[in-house]
């Protein structure tokens, strides 16, 4: 039979495949992301700065974020305090830098917990179907019908103000989103022939969900995680602003807003700069999420 041309063919396809096929080396993928999604790349850079600030705050920050200076109360931006000082004479810039730690910590923990829970629920719901699916979806629909911030307020006030409780409240809030996406993706993947092939090979349901389901929904989950990160940072700030989030004197962005609100007319820098920090970070996460979604969508022209 005419097998020889087939075995001879691979070298030719090799070259062609390396050119434009989607599974490229990590480095090539990164380069293509920067080229096709410039906004996403800028956003990623902003987020990187945010992460560096969070980790290096104690070394980079010009002042101790908790040190009070009675001689410099409510001072505008100056050489000594680049972004001004607050009502207790603390350096706003240093507090914003340290505040990024809390935002990053709350965001990362919340997203990781809700990703783990939500993806597990969604994958099981989508693959197993039937009563499991009906019960889980009913539960998730009920959760989604409650206004998110009200729900978070309820949980946080029930648990009392602490960073851990904020994380718990926000995780409960974001689980349904991940569950929804994971379920939809699992339903899509389930209909593919390679799932039937795995069943025929005798693979267990757990193996199919973890080895075939999960890896094929990673792009979608990354997008939702990135968009979710922005929401979580805003929600943390909102909860703290309302006094049931991160307790003082921690330099949280939300706390800075709430304290600055009182002095808005005499010291607008107290509220403007932390507000800008929140906006910039959330915008960056949202733009990155959008860019990743476009990047992963095979239907869009590269």
């Amino acid at each position: 039979m005419s097998d020889t041309p087939m075995t001879a063919a691979p070298p030719a396809t090799d070259a062609a495949a390396a050119d434009r096929m989607p599974t490229e080396s990590r480095w090539a993928g990164l380069k293509r992301f920067v080229r096709t999604q410039p906004m996403g790349a800028v956003s990623a850079l902003v987020i990187l700065v945010f992460i560096v600030l969070a980790f290096g705050a104690s070394m980079i920050a010009p002042h101790d974020p908790l040190a009070q200076d009675r001689t410099a109360i409510l001072q505008g931006p100056s050489a000594a305090h680049l972004l001004g000082s607050d009502d207790l004479g603390r350096d706003v810039l240093s507090r914003i830098m340290h505040g990024s730690q809390i935002s990053l910590y709350v965001g990362t923990m919340t997203i990781m917990i809700s990703l783990l829970l939500g993806a597990t629920l969604g994958i099981a719901s989508g693959y197993l179907g039937g009563p499991v699916d009906a019960v889980l979806q009913g539960f998730i629909d009920a959760m989604l019908s409650i206004p998110p911030l009200i729900l978070a307020l309820f949980i946080a006030s029930l648990l009392g103000p602490s960073v851990q409780n904020v994380i718990a409240a926000l995780a409960v809030l974001t689980v349904p989103r991940f569950a929804r996406i994971a379920r939809g993706e699992m339903l899509r993947i389930k209909s593919e022939d390679f799932i039937s092939a795995a069943v025929v090979l005798g693979a267990s349901r757990t193996r199919i969900m973890l080895r075939h389901g999960l890896p094929n929904m990673v792009p979608s989950l990354i997008v939702v995680a990135s968009l979710g990160f922005g929401t979580v940072i805003v929600a943390e700030a909102a909860l703290t602003f309302l006094g049931i989030g991160t307790p003082p004197p921690n330099p949280s962005w939300g706390l800075m807003l709430s304290q600055g609100a009182t002095y808005f007319q005499v010291a607008p820098w107290m509220i403007v700069f932390p507000g800008l920090a929140i906006s910039a970070t959330v915008l960056a996460f949202n733009l990155l999420g959008d860019a990743l979604r476009d990047f992963f969508d095979p239907k869009l022209v590269r």
Binding site: E192, D193, F194, S196, A197, A198, V200, L201, G202, S204, R211, H212, P215, N216, V218
Partner: peptide, 22 residues
């Protein structure tokens, strides 16, 4: 599942039938 190794299938669509991430 134990019988499965003796019965197999080859699919029509060579694109949907292979897990793209493996």
């Amino acid at each position: 599942a134990a019988q499965r190794r003796r019965l197999q299938i080859i699919f029509q669509d060579p694109f949907s039938s292979l897990d793209p991430r493996m």
